[in-house]
């Protein structure tokens, strides 16, 4: 299994490249799974009455760590397991509710190798529901320079995300 795994290397990526889109239909179960997996017991992530009556929104909605986990999955589906997240910044402009269809998209903004020799890809990501941009995300991910490189081996001064 490991010998055949997918591995994106830096020579295969350039600015402007598009990360294949990824679509997820969000159910109440999706929201609750994400909340429980991230140990988030707050009621707006499992109790529709609370979400509607207290928060004034239409349904229960994905919590922040669950969105982060979905973005991570989207990124590493593209890079393969050798891809190592260095930094993620996301801005939630709206919420993803049960019943929504979320679509993840990404565009490579920059490819660079830092002073330590680590190869970085900066990706601009979006999560949309319909035409509405719900969350934007800027991710910086280290990928191997070549088939024998491994960003996960970097530590201390050799890891500067």
């Amino acid at each position: 299994m490991s010998a055949e795994r997918h591995m994106l290397t830096i020579d295969q990526v350039k600015a402007g490249d598009v990360v294949p889109a990824f679509t997820v239909d969000v159910s109440a179960t999706t929201v609750v799974l994400g909340a429980l997996a991230s140990r988030d017991w707050r009621p707006m992530h499992h109790d529709k009455d609370f979400a509607v009556q207290r928060n004034g929104v239409k349904d229960i909605f994905l919590n922040t760590p669950a969105q982060a986990a979905w973005f991570e999955r989207y990124i590493t589906d593209w890079t393969g397991p050798a891809g190592r997240l260095g930094r993620m910044k996301f801005r939630m402009k709206d919420s993803v509710f049960a019943g929504d269809r979320m679509v993840f998209r990404g565009v490579v903004e920059q490819v660079e190798t830092d002073a330590t020799g680590c190869s970085w890809v900066d990706v601009a990501l979006s999560l949309k529901v319909g035409e509405k941009l719900v969350t934007s995300c800027a991710a910086r991910v280290a990928i191997p320079a070549n088939a024998s490189d491994n960003p996960w081996k970097r530590r201390g001064e050799n890891w500067k995300p």
């Binding site: 490991s2 999706t30 429980l36 997996a37 669950a66 986990a69 397991p81 996960w152």
Partner: peptide
């Protein structure tokens, strides 16, 4: 957590991959 977002990254499911990487 991986299951909640259907993350099949072998780094988290396959001990051999985890050992190697």
């Amino acid at each position: 957590t991986c299951s909640s977002v259907q993350n099949g990254n072998p780094l988290f499911w396959d001990d051999q991959v985890a050992q190697e990487l």
